[in-house]
């Protein structure tokens, strides 16, 4: 019988050592993906390295006007942080679409990211926001943009012995706003058929000066659609700009047909959700500009 050893290291170094010692070992955040996968027999790691006992791994830190979110921070704790929720409402809302209250009391954004599901809800919002991961490994700490982590369904770019220590969100730009929307048949406890995150900046006149648009569930990984952002920059988000945004998003969508949606429906929804998310982001930007 195969068996799994449970470790709860107290330091980042110990965690790295444990992860390096067994190539099948897995970091454990909330366990809402990992334990489900172990129970179903899809995964049987030799060791589970619980990150929650590591000092500083749980909680949101303010670094000037930026935010550092510990890898073991549950999604509900993000909502409870008023500063973060005001600065990056799209990210916080995306993380709080995951599962149910019970799931979110455990689930983390780092786990959402490292599980590398193309449908992960917090990831497009993080990518749109320009979030960066701090990664610990055998050779110390390094940084990587969120979009560099997932490489294909279930696979990440993390090297053996590496894990995400925290996710950093930049300061909210003046005139900035973000939003995330997903399409699901049910209102909750569901997996995104398509997800769209938009983060943009408006100047005093309401003209868009910067925009990032990221999509979930339309390809093997999260997709950062630069053309879609470009379609908004220099515009006041009029009908033409929004149509160009939808078109760029659809062109960048290469979804599959599966039990959760067809190719044509997913493409159509990517366009609709990106447009709606852009309008919400703009209203947030306008409100605080």
């Amino acid at each position: 019988m195969s068996s799994t050893v449970y470790h709860a290291p107290g330091t980042v170094e110990d965690a790295v050592a444990l992860l390096s010692a067994d190539p099948t070992a897995r970091p454990l955040g909330g366990g809402t993906d990992l334990i489900v996968q172990m129970r179903s027999g899809r995964l049987s790691p030799g060791a589970v390295i619980d990150l929650k006992r590591i000092e500083g791994m749980s909680g949101v830190r303010r670094v000037g006007d930026a935010f550092a979110i510990g890898a073991a921070t549950p999604c509900t704790a993000l909502k409870a942080n008023a500063g973060l929720a005001a600065a990056w409402p799209g990210v916080v809302e995306a993380a709080n679409l995951i599962g149910s209250v019970q799931v979110r009391n455990r689930a983390t954004m780092a786990g959402n990211l490292c599980n590398a599901s193309p449908a992960a809800d917090s990831v497009p919002a993080l990518v749109a926001a320009g979030a960066v991961c701090v990664i610990a490994g055998p050779s110390g700490l390094r940084e990587a943009p969120v979009e560099a982590i997932p490489v294909s369904p279930g696979k990440t770019s993390l090297a053996p012995g590496e894990f995400v220590v925290e996710i950093r969100l930049p300061p909210r730009p003046a005139g900035g706003g973000d939003a995330y929307l997903r399409a699901t048949p049910r209102t909750e406890m569901d997996i995104a058929v398509v997800g769209a995150g938009v983060s943009l900046v408006l100047d005093g006149e309401g003209t868009c000066t910067a925009a990032r648009v990221a999509l979930g569930a339309v390809g093997p990984t999260v997709v950062l659609v630069e053309e879609a952002g470009a379609a908004l920059v220099g515009t006041k988000l009029g009908d033409d700009a929004l149509a160009a945004l939808s078109q760029a998003v659809q062109a960048a969508s290469h979804p599959i047909d599966d039990k959760r949606g067809t190719v044509s429906y997913r493409k159509a929804m990517a366009g609709v959700l990106a447009r709606r998310a852009a309008l919400i982001a703009a209203s947030r930007a306008g409100a605080k500009a």
């Binding site: 048949p185 049910r186 209102t187 909750e188 406890m189 569901d190 997996i191 039990k259 959760r260």
Partner: peptide
């Protein structure tokens, strides 16, 4: 499973 066999949840 109940994830993809979509019975309504309370909020539906």
């Amino acid at each position: 499973g109940f994830l993809d066999y979509r019975m309504p949840v309370a909020s539906d």
